[in-house]
C-alpha cells in the first residue's frame, strides 16, 4: 500500500469536501425538480380524467 504524503492527503481531502459540497448544492434542486416532474405527471393524469365533449376544440382565439 502506497504511503501518502501530507500534501497528497490534503489534496485528497480537499477533493472529497468539494465533491460533497457539490453534491449538497445539487441535491436541493434535484428535490425541487423531482417534485416539479411529479407535479407534471399528476396534473397530466388529472387532466386526462377530466371529461369533456369530443367536439370541444382547444381555445386558441380570445375574441369577444
Amino acid at each position: 500500500m502506497k504511503k501518502l504524503t501530507r500534501r497528497e492527503l490534503a489534496a485528497g481531502l480537499a477533493a472529497v469536501s468539494v465533491a460533497q459540497a457539490q453534491r449538497k448544492t445539487n441535491a436541493e434542486p434535484l428535490d425541487d425538480l423531482e417534485r416539479a416532474l411529479k407535479g407534471v405527471r399528476d396534473t397530466g393524469e388529472r387532466l386526462s380524467d377530466f371529461d369533456i365533449p369530443l367536439s370541444t376544440e382547444p381555445a386558441f382565439q380570445f375574441r369577444a
Binding site: E28, P29, D32, L33, R35, A36, L37, G39, V40, T43, G44, L47, S48, F50, I52, T56, E57, P58, A59, F60, F62
Partner: peptide, 29 residues
C-alpha cells in the same frame, strides 16, 4: 430553485396534456 425546476419540468409536459388543458380552457371561456 423552484423556478429552475419548474422551467425544466415544463419541457416534460405531454402534448396531450397541454391540448386537454386548452380544451378545458375553451369550456371556461
Amino acid at each position: 430553485r423552484k423556478q429552475i425546476a419548474g422551467l425544466k419540468a415544463g419541457l416534460e409536459v405531454k402534448a396531450s396534456s397541454y391540448l386537454k388543458a386548452m380544451r378545458v380552457r375553451r369550456r371556461m371561456q
